[in-house]
């Protein structure tokens, strides 16, 4: 990477981050989601401090918290990022930016990382806020370590995957239509039982992080009875569901990041053709 490319990437990353993190809606949407979370009884967030409801084990509790936060707040994350790349065209600033010496690919990666990181700030603030409160409340400082590990192997790869598609796909369809597809995909590809219909749930392409949850964090649900990855008897697409091991967990993360890179490269190619 030439130094000019690195500078362009760094500058657009910083600018996109600052622009996005100051948007009120980036904070309002996660805040309202947390309010809904707290209103609906029985969810782990509300029961985090109830010894009868939460697990005794700090690891199980903070990883379970991550699953809930990741499942729900990622919806708003993808929807909020969907207008970021098409925005340059809509505001007609794309030709001006294209006329600068900064390479479009560097600006795209900068926008991806900057806007993606800024939109993730409230999500991570919610997660680490609750994890820290739990650690103090129960006197279990290792909860914060587990929260960091979960964030690194589950939340960050999942959000990077979502952000790449949220940026690229609205180039080929209206952003609101992408939001509808994305929500449908999120439910179908993460939650639907594999023996009900062909789904990407529990496969290597699982942005909710089934393999890392199972093989790296040894998480099997709050009650310990759930499985989050691996083959399901009688299900289709089982060739995408190897047995969960640390190797397949890292492979799953690599597949998510590779698909994110493919989506970004596709978005870059679409923009280059239109320019």
């Amino acid at each position: 990477m030439t130094s000019q490319t690195a500078r362009a990437l760094g500058a657009s990353l910083r600018y996109e981050f600052r622009m996005q993190v100051r948007k009120p809606s980036v904070w309002i949407v996660p805040a309202l989601t947390v309010v809904l979370f707290l209103l609906i009884g029985g969810s782990l967030l509300r029961d985090l401090f109830d010894p009868d409801e939460s697990s005794d084990d700090a690891r199980t509790t903070v990883v379970g918290l991550a699953v809930q936060v990741h499942t729900l707040l990622s919806i708003g994350y993808g929807c909020l990022l969907a207008d970021r790349l098409v925005r340059d065209d809509r505001l007609r600033v794309a030709p001006i930016l294209d006329a600068t010496p900064a390479r479009p690919s560097a600006r795209l990666v900068g926008k991806y990382l900057g806007a993606g990181a800024a939109t993730a700030v409230p999500i991570l603030a919610v997660y680490f806020g609750f994890a820290a409160a739990y650690a103090v409340h129960t006197g279990a400082p290792d909860a914060l370590g587990w929260a960091l590990a979960t964030c690194a192997v589950v939340i960050v790869p999942g959000l990077l995957f979502v952000a790449a598609f949220a940026l690229a796909v609205p180039l080929i369809m209206p952003a609101p239509l992408f939001r509808v597809f994305f929500v449908g995909y999120w439910l179908w590809g993460n939650v639907v039982a594999p023996d009900m219909m062909p789904t990407l749930a529990r496969t290597l392409i699982h942005p909710l992080g089934g393999y890392p949850l199972d093989a790296l964090l040894d998480f099997h649900g709050i009650d310990g009875g759930d499985t989050w990855a691996g083959p399901v008897p009688g299900a289709t697409l089982n060739f995408l569901r190897p047995d969960p091991t640390p190797t397949t967990a890292w492979l799953s993360i690599a597949v998510l990041l590779a698909l994110a890179a493919v989506a970004l490269a596709g978005g870059h190619a679409v923009r280059a053709r239109r320019a």
């Binding site: 809606s25 809904l36 729900l72 919806i75 929807c79 207008d83 939001r179 929500v183 439910l187």
Partner: peptide
């Protein structure tokens, strides 16, 4: 539209 769409999607998913 981004924030409003995100809110609708979140309510639906909830």
């Amino acid at each position: 539209p981004a924030a409003a769409g995100a809110l609708v999607s979140t309510v639906w998913t909830f």
